[in-house]
Nucleic acid binder design. Sequence first.
DNA 1: TCAGTTGTGAAAAACCTGTGAAAGCAGGGA
DNA 2: TCCCTGCTTTCACAGGTTTTTCACAACTGA
Lengths: 269, 269
Amino acid sequence: MNSPQTIRLAVIDTDSGFVTVLSKRAEVAGWQLRVAAGAVPAEELVAMKLNALLLDPTAIGEGGWEYLKRVCGVLPDLGVIVCTGRSTVAQRVRGLRLGADDWITKPCHPEEAMARVEAISRRRRSRNESEAGPVVAAELEIRPDQYQAFVGGDSLDLTRREFELLHLLAGAQGQVLERETIYQRVWGYAMAHGDRSVDVFIRKLRQKLEKRSSGWSYIHTHFGVGYRFDPEPLTGAAGALGAPVAPEPAGEAAPEPLSQVVHNTFTAG
Amino acid sequence: MNSPQTIRLAVIDTDSGFVTVLSKRAEVAGWQLRVAAGAVPAEELVAMKLNALLLDPTAIGEGGWEYLKRVCGVLPDLGVIVCTGRSTVAQRVRGLRLGADDWITKPCHPEEAMARVEAISRRRRSRNESEAGPVVAAELEIRPDQYQAFVGGDSLDLTRREFELLHLLAGAQGQVLERETIYQRVWGYAMAHGDRSVDVFIRKLRQKLEKRSSGWSYIHTHFGVGYRFDPEPLTGAAGALGAPVAPEPAGEAAPEPLSQVVHNTFTAG
DNA sequence: TCAGTTGTGAAAAACCTGTGAAAGCAGGGA
DNA sequence: TCCCTGCTTTCACAGGTTTTTCACAACTGA
């Protein structure tokens, strides 16, 4: 389950008056607040698992725009609100186009700032909804409450990342997910060009799945695109390894009637 | 990769000056705009497949707040921006808490309003990125969520580029697209002079289409111009099966185009 | 007929993914 | 503190696919 309402907000601003008042109110509202007076490296922002960032570019000086752009690029899921003094329409438009979600002009009432932070965070949260209950697919049972997956009661011994990846894929069963999307959702920030982490974890998952459930093929590769989770029984004589393999489940187990929807992946053969 | 950045926006406002200016700019930017002067039933908003709604509650009168709340409740995925005259902090906070994503105070520069609409839509798009519905044309089913097309449940085994090309063409069904346009949209950058890639991929598509759906002709060449997607049954002896003469399958997944800038009420409920 | 376009098949170049292994990190225990 | 252990990230290579390029045949419209 997601944390109920707790908003995690970082504020980058040098206006101590504004920050002080905002902090007080945020504390009362039970928010998790982090304040800085200058640029915070993007990696740190990642580690903070923020909902939103309230930023006054003037606190950063020269590279304010650059910083805004970079943060928005690395953390496309982070709500970013610019809150600064007088500005021209052109500046505001530029900021919004660079990736900011909102732009507030100081002086502004902290209550309004908070309401806008909430509005931004609300959208973000609604996406992470659902997917709390256990998922069953073929022989596999995925239990979010344990951060683990099982086959016939045996744990797959998944690490945290492996589990999150599997959970994400299984939650989008039948759908092809691009690597960038996967990375973004599991790692929480944008994938660097050329990063192979997703591939490596897919391999690990496949190994562990194969070990416990060798009669099924769960993760399919879509060349040039990404991966798709969709349990398919392996027809061949593959499961010859003393595993309790139900040869041809023919009945309940198969999630899809093979007659129709057996969309082969292109690399399937 | 996704349908371009066409934004579908509805405006509910009685301020004809503001609306007129906004409409002009939106048209230039290629947005799909719909204007109304009073409340529009939520169901109609749903049918429009909007990215965002720009609303001046005063255009609705009494039930402005109620209306806002209802729309936000029924369409949690719709970006809602309130744009109205003078207001108190309390009003703005209330509006934002009711579900509005942003609040702009008039008078405001249309460019800024548009930037804010973009900012809101950006979020929305990134969320249901792969949400694009399947397209059906004749025997063909195009599924963006799978990066693949099917005929009677059989995959065409399209590669990524092939799929994107087909998707683009099918999305502009009946319309002739020039090579330069196609290249620009599928490859993402300008076509070099003399590049034949589009032709080559068209051939590959035709081959794969012919293989699975030989009774139809899908892609037509317009000499000196480009290509047009438009399924036509082959009357001759070609089709091995008695070709069902379904002239216009009208399998519509794309929302019906909002006629650019329709100045009119669509009669409130 | 001619000049310009488009269809085709095949080869070359570019690109992707699977894989094994090493390097980098973080946490726990001695 | 240092070491150990397990997890994550990075790297390089092999093998396979896809995309691009080319040359030429077939075709279109004036």
